[in-house]
């Protein structure tokens, strides 16, 4: 039953973007007499300015993440943390992914790919990893892009809250998967 539900949800999602692209102008043109072409162009113009505006924020965040990752500091942190995590039932194999996830989307996808190739999609470790990947976000990137686009420099509690949510997502993934599959 779950399988067919997943399939139908995935089927529906294939049609959403094309339907939105044609449905919204349809509604505007036919029901509200909006000049859809002119209006589109006015809106689209902002795409350029916003993309340019986020560049300094992205450079700042990505350079710091890149330096941290390339130095091997992540591995050091791993060695330090793994005995504690094993004690609370957190598989050490999943730790690199958990630490990488808020920092880098492509980096964490690489780690997940490696995890699934090494242990097989049926393993508990792969299932935990995939659940983790699906239930957290690249918090630093989202923060840089969203706040950067409007020039906010004082981000207050957003980062703490985002990282806390990531941590809860990561631990939930571990314990929920252990409960269902372990």
């Amino acid at each position: 039953m779950i399988e067919s539900f997943v399939q139908s949800v995935n089927q529906v999602s294939r049609y959403i973007i094309p339907l939105l692209l044609v449905g919204i102008p349809f509604y505007g043109l036919i029901f509200k007499k909006v000049k859809v072409y002119e209006t589109f162009v006015v809106g689209a113009k902002d795409g350029f300015t916003i993309a340019i505006r986020i560049i300094p924020y992205l450079v700042a965040i990505l350079v710091a993440i890149g330096m941290f990752r390339a130095s091997g500091a992540l591995d050091l942190l791993l060695n330090f943390l793994s005995p504690v995590l094993t004690f609370i039932g957190f598989p050490p194999e999943n730790l690199p992914l958990a630490l990488m996830r808020p920092l880098s989307g492509s980096g964490s996808l690489g780690l997940l790919t490696d995890l699934i190739n090494q242990h097989g999609p049926d393993s508990l470790i792969a299932k935990i990893g995939a659940t983790m990947f699906g239930s957290t976000e690249t918090t630093f990137y989202v923060l840089a892009v969203y706040f950067g686009s409007v020039g906010i420099r004082k981000t207050r509690h957003a980062l703490v809250a985002g990282l806390f949510a990531d941590a809860v997502g990561v631990f939930s993934a571990v314990y929920i998967c252990r409960f269902f599959f372990g």
Partner: peptide, 22 residues
Amino acid sequence: LAIGLIGIMALWLGIMKIAEES
């Protein structure tokens, strides 16, 4: 990354403008 966003941003912001006006 930022440059790569321009096209998609323009597309959706254009459609959004129509959604807003209507």
